[in-house]
Nucleic acid binder design. Structure first.
Lengths: 216, 216
DNA sequence: GGGTTACGCTACGGCCCGTAGCGTAAGTCA
DNA sequence: TGACTTACGCTACGGGCCGTAGCGTAACCC
């Protein structure tokens, strides 16, 4: 996943790709069954039919393993073209909420985020394997919206990047907060209302007559 | 904190209020020093000058203790009146980000949320001691904005409640996500842009000509 | 074959959890 | 004052999991 692909083949016995997949599958299963607290590296190893030491040879600890096991989940997100930005956002929001429908998956994700709060290396790992990997959705949506004329073009690249980050934080943050802290479901109605709020607000934000766009 | 206040004085030796405060202070200190993983109930007890058993007599476990230790932090949030909804939102966003400036505080909060994902009792505890206790800020802001004429009045109470929940999720979610997942600071410029996005979007959302407000 | 790396297995020290048991301290009530 | 009730401090314990060390074996390259 985030391991170096041995471009130059090294001598010695190669790592078993089968074991890699077995371990990640076992980790996902363990998460689904017993949540974060229920995941023990010993248990994952046993379930994967692998020695515990093999596990420690590949991942520094529980956080990194679970993160890798979760990262793939988000790769299934797609931005369909419904003809309007709001509809597209609504669709992606529902997809995202669907991925986190399982409470234990939510728990595992949050736990990793929690550890990241005081672990810079883990934070970087998250940034690479989840955030950066999904940010293309935001860029894609913006391009479409600008082509449609729904959103004005940003004055410069820096402003465009700031707005993309903002959109990402607002979407992912709102959905996570609703599911996890408020503990209420993301329904179609909620997604529609949220998409309206976001797209209207975004139009105002990008509008040059909107506010002072003082850079950070 | 969330214990029953002994309205009718019971017989026997009363619980030491001093110990309660000492334990919560010790827990906060432990969080600040070593983050979630570093908090051990044994350690907290020792630091508080209290027997470990005393701790277990009052809190079911680590989650509940840390939650109680964190809940007070949010009570300092205030909604100042700057004359415009956007400015008020901006102010509160900066306050909120300020509370979470300390990475270890963020970690402790996130860890509690993570556990809550698969612990309904803890979820309820969070809902009561944090979410419900701070939601008055949203209601207050809405009332002011409607008095000022910045926002239209909602058609009915249910719609008003839905919007309030939405605002809460968007604000808290976006700030948390930016600080924790994106790992970028909440600057004054970011807060201003976010406040613009939210207030403009909210105006569109509440606008009767906005979209179909199909209830959930 | 020799060299190199990965694997499975076992065993271990260490830390922390959560509880039990006991004697003692601090209150209430008669 | 003395009986009663509840909280406290202390010690001890079984149990679980962590993360590592050591060893023999398996797979791959030259």
């Amino acid at each position: 996943m985030s391991h170096e692909t041995p471009s130059a083949r090294r001598p010695g016995r190669p790592r078993s790709a089968t074991a890699d997949r077995a371990i990640l599958d076992a980790a996902r299963a363990a998460i689904a069954e017993s949540g974060w607290a229920g995941v023990t590296l010993g248990g994952v190893a046993a379930r994967a039919g692998v020695a515990k030491t093999t596990l420690y040879r590949r991942w520094p600890g529980k956080n990194e393993l679970v993160l890798d096991a979760l990262a793939d989940l988000f790769d299934s997100l797609r931005l369909p073209d419904h003809g309007s930005l709001a509809r597209d956002v609504e669709d992606v929001v529902l997809q995202f909420a669907g991925l986190l429908r399982e409470p234990r998956t939510r728990g595992a994700l949050m736990a990793v985020l929690a550890e990241a709060a005081h672990d810079a290396a883990l934070r970087e790992r998250i940034r690479v394997s989840i955030v950066a990997r999904q940010k293309h959705l935001v860029r894609q949506g913006r391009e479409r919206a600008q082509t449609r004329g729904e959103l004005p073009a940003e004055p410069d690249a820096a402003a465009a990047e700031r707005n993309a980050d903002m959109v990402f934080d607002v979407i992912a943050g709102a959905v996570l907060h609703r599911l996890l802290v408020s503990a209420e479901p993301v329904t179609a109605a909620w997604a529609a209302a949220f998409a309206t709020l976001l797209t209207r607000g975004l139009a105002a934000l990008t509008d040059p007559a909107g506010q002072d766009p003082a850079a950070q």
